[in-house]
Design a protein around this nucleic acid. Structure first.
Lengths: 415, 415
DNA sequence: ATACTAAGTTTAGGTACTAAACAAACTTCT
DNA sequence: AGAAGTTTGTTTAGTACCTAAACTTAGTAT
């Protein structure tokens, strides 16, 4: 299904060339539509070099001419742009969650050109089964005859678990009972395209940060994506790169201690943020408060207890339920304690709140901002913008897709 | 005093050349003494290119031949090494502290070839006065006629305060009453060499990390230097680069909340680590405990109170004073709470304990390690090595010197 | 002595850049 | 309308820097 010959014509180019290609692509992306002269002026390269590189990029389906524009006193400039849609090249990002596989096709502009979401089959999901599911979705998303398959830059997959993003090796994915699965290898073997595998929350972090349009893609400053849900995780992006850490576990925000003598956490520590502000803790707290306030309402109907799910709790929050609001406000206080520490320590320029609890709006944001003003240092706090995630279930897919796309204009200095 | 002409012959070289120069210098540093053939094999460059670049490096006093070695069956290889000592090139790193100016000359091997430490003159220190002091020390350290002055790569200065390391602009140095001082500009103007100005704790972080010889210089993984003293600061190094943050305040470890309802901190928050484990807090705690245990010893001689300085407290710790040990153990518990959070969140491979309190040894390390085992996640904890700082007062100077030296083999991809 | 081998240099050829000349496609001025 | 001037994009000539291969140098082995 994949034509290897045409897949990547820029195999052997010098470092010089790579750098200049990257310069041109970067400038093109930000200034498009734009003429060669302007690219030359902007990049500092000669017009000759720009022409030569643009020719290459056109051959590779990365760039296209979109006709001449109005004259500026002489010959009319020919406008160029990054080639959009299925005619240009594209990447597919997938997210594997407990019950779904969600795929997104991203074009060279970073725009979504197709999505597909499907339920996982019942029963235990084996790695080989996932590979097959991904293959099917790739076919569906690119078309059965895969007409533009040679234009596929690569595919990415976000997995809930411990993944080494360099090797694409899944060390542990507890939800599926996986240990030591070379998922990247398996997918590349089957699909014959470059594959990127990483943790799903981290992929979502990349997506939300890149698509926030709040800060330049390669800003050196830390940007943090916080996922607030059953668990509390995060992705920290520094110099445009996701921080992995020595054992690929960087970003464990949920196990920061916020109440030294607090409740026992599943990790063995006491007072972890997750133990006091994870959704299960909030549900318990809600029940506790409800019982205190109206001993009759809930204690007399014990059958109702198991039915207060996280989802229902969040509905109650959105509906303006007073008690639920109070529980969220308490959680916000705890989250702020950990977040203030991270703001002081890493001095980020952007924080994006995601995950189910991150989306509830003012019920969380107001008390959170208040507490941050008390707990964080004024200077770093003044530099950070706190916003809400906006990509929903496509976040991880978009992050992976955009990452693959941006690798097209990356310089590889082989050590 | 400085000859600008000979200062930097590698002004206009292509990116290709820069990359290859860097490759060769890196390999040379790790494999020296080494012959051209081996450099060629190791770097993948042709012997011709290696010869050409080595010629350049020799001209620039960066590299020297040290004669032929034994034959391996044919012509004897000529060994090369990075040129050591004053004959090679060198950099000078300074640290400005409350009372001293400490200078260190570092050669291309990263070795100290001279140091000088002097008391600051009495009275208010003005920026212009500091510039003059630095100039004098540079002259003393390189010799009055500055014979090797053209071999000076640059000078660095660590300042206790808020510094933008890119511009060398000191935004605030409270100890000296400085606001908005363009110190780098002033020093470059006066000394006619490249100057790097940064925060002193961060410079020390670079020094301790680089000289720890524990991890490769450009390890992607986070490495943390913790300075425990009156205040508690840190420097976080990721991908071999110091993290600055959006307002150049990254590394504020002392204002992580470890006791949400604890004592008020100078920053306005309650329960900051610094407020419970900074040296002043430990001294107070010691007096409190002493009073409880032996109401007579201290309360009857009130004149003794002001004499318990931080220095004396640390002596008591070293002397094995039981109470002091208990106070340090309590502090270790608090430090571990914050540190566990940082270990979980950044997943570092190395943590270096510095500052006066960081040096007390087992009194701190034992309870700290114990508490970390309780509080930090097992996987990231298992990847981190916790060691003690080893460079003393020269840490910042060495960090700056080594940074300047390593900039010689850095590739600048002007965006 | 002769043959072999390895290290380092020189040479010929290729890639990729720039400056400058040129060609193409406009506008403006008389 | 025709000549002159502008601007864009391409071609050309020259330069920097790489590699492969030939060559020189300086040894060892027989």
């Amino acid at each position: 299904m994949i034509n290897e010959q045409t897949a990547n014509p820029k195999i052997a180019s010098t470092i010089q060339r790579q750098v200049n290609r990257a310069k041109i692509l970067r400038t093109l992306r930000t200034l498009q539509p734009v003429a060669r002269v302007d690219l030359a002026r902007e990049t500092g390269l000669s017009r000759a070099t720009v022409s030569s590189i643009v020719d290459e990029l056109v051959l590779e389906s990365l760039v296209e001419e979109i006709g001449a524009t109005t004259s500026r006193g002489g010959r009319r400039p020919i406008l160029l742009r990054v080639r959009p849609g299925r005619e240009g090249r594209s990447a597919i990002g997938f997210e594997l969650s407990r019950n779904n596989l969600t795929g997104v096709v991203v074009d060279l502009h970073g725009r979504v050109i197709a999505t597909h979401r499907e339920l996982l089959p019942a029963g235990q999901l084996e790695p080989a089964g996932l590979v097959e599911l991904v293959r099917q979705q790739v076919e569906r998303l690119t078309g059965p005859q895969a007409p533009a398959a040679h234009n596929l830059v690569g595919i990415g997959l976000g997995v809930p678990g411990l993944v080494n993003p360099d090797t694409g090796f899944v060390q542990l994915a507890a939800q599926f009972g996986w240990h030591s699965v070379p998922l990247k290898e398996m997918l590349e073997e089957r699909l014959k395209v470059p594959v990127k595998v990483m943790n799903n929350v981290k992929a979502a972090a990349l997506g939300e940060v890149i698509y926030s349009n709040d800060t330049p893609d390669h800003s050196p400053n830390p940007r943090l994506y916080l996922s607030l849900g059953e668990g509390i995780g995060s992705g920290l992006i520094i110099e445009g790169k996701l921080l992995s850490g020595a054992s690929y576990t960087a970003g464990e925000f949920g196990h920061i201690t916020v109440a030294p003598n607090g409740p026992l956490c599943t990790c063995g520590n006491t007072g972890c943020l997750e133990a006091v502000a994870g959704l299960p803790a909030l549900v318990s707290r809600y029940l506790e408060l409800a019982r205190l306030e109206e001993p009759n309402r809930l204690t007399t109907t014990p059958g109702e207890f198991p039915f207060l799910t996280s989802a229902r709790f969040l509905e109650a929050v959105s509906a303006g339920d007073r008690l639920a609001g109070r529980v969220v406000a308490e959680a916000a206080e705890q989250i702020a304690t950990a977040l203030a520490g991270v703001i002081n320590f890493t001095n980020p320029e952007l924080i994006i709140l995601g995950g189910p609890l991150g989306q509830v709006g003012a019920a969380l944001l107001d008390p959170l901002n208040q507490a941050l003003r008390r707990r964080a240092l004024p200077l770093p706090l003044s530099q950070v913008r706190l916003i809400t995630a906006s990509l929903g279930v496509n976040a991880a897919g978009l992050g992976l897709g955009a990452t693959l796309i941006s690798q097209l204009s990356e310089v590889v200095l082989s050590r």
